[in-house]
Write a protein that binds this DNA or RNA. Structure first.
Lengths: 147, 147
DNA sequence: CAAGCACTTTACGTTAACGTAACCCTGGGC
DNA sequence: GCCCAGGGTTACGTTAACGTAAAGTGCTTG
């Protein structure tokens, strides 16, 4: 280890322009390259190219992460794209577009609220089912006739 | 049919074994009859019949409700069926089945946890995007050149 | 230089979850 | 008696989100 202050490492790291190959990203997120290419085809990603090969920057990785998160929450790729693209177009977005974006966001937000409620309810159901299952299981493991 | 007053119907309602036609359920849940029939075909519902006509009891309605909730949370019909059917088979379930059920439940639970985290994160993203959008919007509404 | 690996494109295949269309049956109201 | 709304079955169509296979490109390693 060079006798350099760790701090100097740190403050150089931020601009370390790290890039990723498609296979790397695929492994990171437990998906296939095909999926990543598909997302690009659907307008969710737009990586640079060196020749034919795709080169992903940090921002692409973040975008992919957000996309997958959206998917886990049940949003369609089209919905995700809608938000992501408007977000990108924000700087030069006109008022109408921005208001539309706010509408969409409010919509997603409402969706999340409903999901939270659903999760709470579902959680209770699972508790119920589980405790009942444990009861039956216990009764099976104690000889019948006891009480 | 005995000449009964409608009002007397009402105050007996609690144990009035209320039933539903397929169209009623469809309207209640904002889905189509086709969807309900499809769920039956997939083994998620098993309503009684009077002739050919399906008659849904309260338990069927609850089951449908749970199914739809599961769907909103991104579970597949197959996953939902897995839990629902095992739940029904619980009384005579053997230990192995019950343990399998507990596994599945733990799985779902983990899923819900991840979703909660996703929602929290997504919520922040939305906050970010929204506040930025509002900023841009505001800057558009004040004459440029001011500061 | 051959082999192998990771990347590429093109294109057809697949699955889940319904939609839609065509046709039939039945009970109630006019 | 006729009509029509609401129920039924059968069967083919559709959409999203990839999977999979074929065939080519490019580096690097023994």
């Amino acid at each position: 280890m060079p006798p350099r202050s760790p701090a100097s490492d740190i403050h150089r790291l931020p601009r370390q322009r790290r890039t990723y190959a498609i296979g790397e990203l695929a492994r990171m997120f437990q998906i296939t390259p095909r999926t990543i290419r598909f997302y690009e085809q659907e307008g969710l990603l737009a990586p640079e190219r060196r020749g034919q090969t795709r080169i992903y920057q940090e921002k692409d990785r973040v975008r992919l992460k957000l996309t997958l998160r959206g998917k886990r929450l049940g949003f369609s790729l089209a919905e995700i794209r809608e938000v992501v693209m408007m977000y990108d177009a924000m700087p030069d977005g006109n008022a109408r577009q921005l208001k539309r974006l706010l509408e969409i966001l409010a919509d997603k937000r409402a969706n999340l609220e409903r999901q939270l409620e659903d999760i709470r309810l579902m959680h209770r159901e699972l508790d119920d089912v589980e405790s009942q299952a444990r009861d039956v299981l216990a009764s099976l493991e104690t000889p019948p006739g006891e009480h």
